[in-house]
Design a binder for these strands. Structure first.
Ligand SMILES: [Zn+2]
Length: 358
DNA sequence: CGTATTTGACCAGCGC
DNA sequence: GCGCTGGTCAAATACG
């Protein structure tokens, strides 16, 4: 129904699992990267730590079960920033730092502290080769509302992401219509892994561990964007380990006839005349306006989250129990939704853009 | 004194 | 089965 409500729907994880932030799911981020940097360095970075301790009785909580394989999607943003971390309107507490393999710069782990129990985590890493580029990866769903600006952007961004994901057509279904879809949907769709989208260099990648949406705010000339060049081709796409919402086919595609050439064109499909122009504009704006970038980043931190309308409880609180209600419940049928979302996204973006530029 | 950061230790998953 | 790697925890410390 309301394409505009996309944001809520976009979140990748189930709303009800929000409270389950605690421990548990061992899965987390992983260095994202992709794209140009060279990649696989391997090498042996050596951390110096290892000595197992002795004794101790670290009995930490053990949770009942790892029933939530749900938190798995990530959104990462690449932007040029001198600051160690771009401000996105949220407050973060650093809880760890590690040396990234094959990267002189360490990777920092942050957790959102705007509200107790907010499961959102962020990982910041500077590109080794180009220190000007900061890679921020968000994961999780905020269980609280964040600053208006951020929220607004969040909406926009999520919508954009949605459209990105939906791209051609079907994936959207899998994503929004419902998780179950993935399982049942016979959708053959495209199975491009490093699915590239022309729009502001957004890239959807289902490679390795978990699906990841990457936004490059680095510098992508409109022309280039329009031209769209695929990044590196998918490794091999063994068997997608996760059947989750992510991407359709990835999982159950029998013997798909992988296109001889990467399905890059697909994304282009979504760009038509006016939209393209809009995208160009927005891209330009993004690249030139730092504030915009920041806002976008902020939005991303929410994109997944959204608990969106969640918790209208007046109480405030969010206390422990927090029943973050499921909220969501908005499952647009889909087809039209995508289009709507797209338009909405663009609209919002442009508006925002205009506003900021002003 | 309370809170955010630092930093080594701990642990699970994966690959060999 | 062992060792490596990535991620997180938590004690100690720094900051206000
Ligand atoms: Zn949060």
């Amino acid at each position: 129904m309301l394409p505009a409500t996309m944001p809520a729907g976009v979140q990748f994880m189930d709303p009800r699992m929000a409270p389950a932030i605690r421990a548990g799911a061992p899965a987390s981020f992983d260095g994202d990267r992709g794209d140009s940097d060279g990649g696989s360095g391997s090498g042996g970075e050596a951390d110096q730590n290892k000595q197992d301790g002795t004794a101790g009785t670290p009995e930490r909580g053990e949770n009942a079960a790892a029933e939530a394989p749900l938190r798995r999607a990530r959104v990462s943003v690449r932007a040029r920033s001198e600051a160690p971390m771009i401000s996105d309107g949220c407050q973060w507490r650093k809880y760890g730092q590690k040396m990234a393999k094959g990267n002189p710069c360490p990777r920092a782990y942050y957790r959102c502290t705007m509200a107790t129990g907010c499961p959102v985590r962020k990982q910041v890493q500077r590109c080794a080769e180009d220190k000007a580029v900061l890679i921020t990866t968000y994961e999780g769903t905020h269980n609280h509302q964040l600053p208006p600006a951020a929220a607004a952007m969040a909406k926009t961004t999520s919508a954009a992401a949605a459209m990105l994901l939906s791209g051609p057509a079907a994936s959207r279904d899998a994503l929004f219509a419902g998780h179950h879809v993935a399982a049942t949907a016979p959708a053959p769709l495209f199975q491009s892994y490093p699915y590239a989208s022309a729009a502001m260099g957004a890239t959807l990648s289902a490679s390795a561990p978990f699906p990841t949406i990457t936004l490059d705010l680095t510098h992508s000339p409109p022309a280039s964007a329009a031209g769209l060049h695929l990044q590196h081709r998918p490794p091999a796409l063994p068997a997608m380990p996760f059947p989750m919402y992510g991407f359709p086919a990835a999982a159950h595609r029998p013997a798909v006839p992988l296109l001889p050439q990467p399905p890059t064109a697909v994304s282009l499909g979504m760009m038509d005349g006016r939209n393209r122009a809009a995208l160009e504009t927005m891209t330009a704006a993004i690249t030139s306006d730092p504030n915009f970038t920041t806002a976008l980043a902020a939005a991303l931190s929410t994109i997944m989250g959204g608990g969106a309308e969640a918790a209208p409880r007046g109480g405030a609180g969010a206390d422990a129990g927090d029943g973050n209600n499921g909220g969501s419940g908005t499952e647009p049928p889909a087809t039209a939704a995508a289009a709507g979302a797209r338009e909405t996204a663009l609209h919002a973006l442009l508006q925002r853009l205009h506003d900021s530029r002003q």
